[in-house]
């Protein structure tokens, strides 16, 4: 039956169109260059704001790691700061206690340790969903923070580890007063990690994650090893959050136990929801908008600046469920449609 119908030219055309769409949709789109161009332009336009820019890049990376699990796999967590903190303390303690001050190997160590923690906690916690998972992930982050507090002789406690010094990058590029080296360093790390994340979300594995988010019952029914898939992506996301944390410590030259704060977990989630979940670049828009707003509003009103962020979040959740990026996508589609009509 199928053979005779494939000869039907109309049907054949529909098949070819569908196949062509699937084959080409993950190709690089010119609009994807935009955030990178802006990031590079910022380096030249705001040479004296590089410290701030660097903080933004760290948060973009952190939000990107959350997007992998929240946006793609649909895992809701309030303890993602646990892995950020672990990464931050891996390089912090490495430098302060062991004299391990080489930055790049520090990043790898942070990624490995955080990923390992993600593997262990994920293996146990990802059997649960919803509110239970929310509370368990939250508890994990708090327990790590309190562990650091308990051994304040080693971890530095709430005073943290101030005045860390790291070796120059590749032994050549040292720290400068305006943080330009750090900015470029963070941008390159972000670009490399982003490339990996992009490969993952557009891979067959990434498709399976989307399937789990869309309908987990169906995934079980078609034979997907759901738990293994979730633990895998949780481990990867934990590793990336660890890299973000390590960058945070290295570029700020200090770290305190506040990196494990609930506030840190919540903040990165707000950023991602603002920007748009499950769409890669949502992390970029969300982190930038949040950080810039925070920067301006806190100067305007040091006590009430969070009101502005809160208002924006309420508006986004009410009117732009797919975040600011979703809003941009809609605008793009609308313009395209208008163009076709006229």
């Amino acid at each position: 039956m199928a053979a005779s119908e494939t000869i039907n030219p109309q049907r054949k055309q529909a098949r070819e169109r569908a196949a062509a769409h699937l084959l080409s949709r993950h190709h690089f789109h010119w609009a994807e260059a935009l955030p990178w161009v802006i990031a590079i332009a910022a380096f030249y336009v705001f040479p004296d704001r590089m410290t701030f820019g660097n903080q933004v890049l760290v948060m973009v990376l952190f939000a990107l790691s959350l997007d992998l699990i929240l946006g793609y796999a649909g895992i809701v967590t309030l303890g993602h700061a646990a892995f950020f903190g672990l990464g931050a303390y891996t390089v912090g303690l490495g430098a302060a206690r062991l004299g391990w001050t080489e930055p790049i190997s520090g990043l790898f160590a942070a990624a490995l340790i955080s990923a390992f923690a993600g593997l262990i906690t994920g293996w146990f916690l990802l059997r649960y969903r919803g509110l239970t998972l929310l509370m368990l992930t939250l508890a994990t982050a708090i327990m790590l923070q309190e562990a650091g507090n308990l051994r304040s002789d080693f971890s530095g406690g709430y005073d943290g580890l101030p005045g860390l010094e790291f070796k120059p990058l590749f032994g050549v590029f040292g720290y400068d007063l305006y943080g330009r080296t750090n900015y470029v360093y963070a941008l390159v790390v972000l670009a490399v990690v982003f490339y990996f994340v992009r490969r993952i979300v557009y891979s067959p594995f990434g498709q399976a994650l989307t399937g789990i988010r869309e309908n987990v019952r169906r995934m079980h029914a078609i034979g997907s090893p759901v738990h293994r898939r979730l633990v895998t992506v949780y481990t990867i996301a934990a590793g990336i959050a660890g890299i973000a944390g390590a960058l945070f410590t290295q570029t700020n030259a200090y770290v305190t136990l506040t990196v494990f704060d609930f506030e840190n977990s919540a903040k990165v989630m707000v950023m991602l929801i603002l920007g748009g979940t499950g769409r890669l670049y949502g992390a970029f828009i969300g982190a930038v908008v949040y950080m810039v707003l925070e920067d301006h509003l806190s100067k305007l009103s040091p006590t009430f600046w969070q009101f502005g962020i809160g208002l924006l979040l309420v508006l986004a959740v009410l009117f732009a469920r797919r975040g600011l990026l979703g809003l941009l996508e809609d605008a793009g589609k609308y313009l395209k449609k208008k163009k076709v009509q006229s």
Binding site: L23, H26, G206, I222, G223
Partner: peptide, 20 residues
């Protein structure tokens, strides 16, 4: 495609582009 991917074990692949 997702169903076929899970059936054949393609979904264990994190690197190849889906739909390729």
């Amino acid at each position: 495609c997702l169903t076929i991917g899970e059936r054949d074990g393609n979904c264990n692949n994190l690197w190849r582009t889906a739909g390729s």
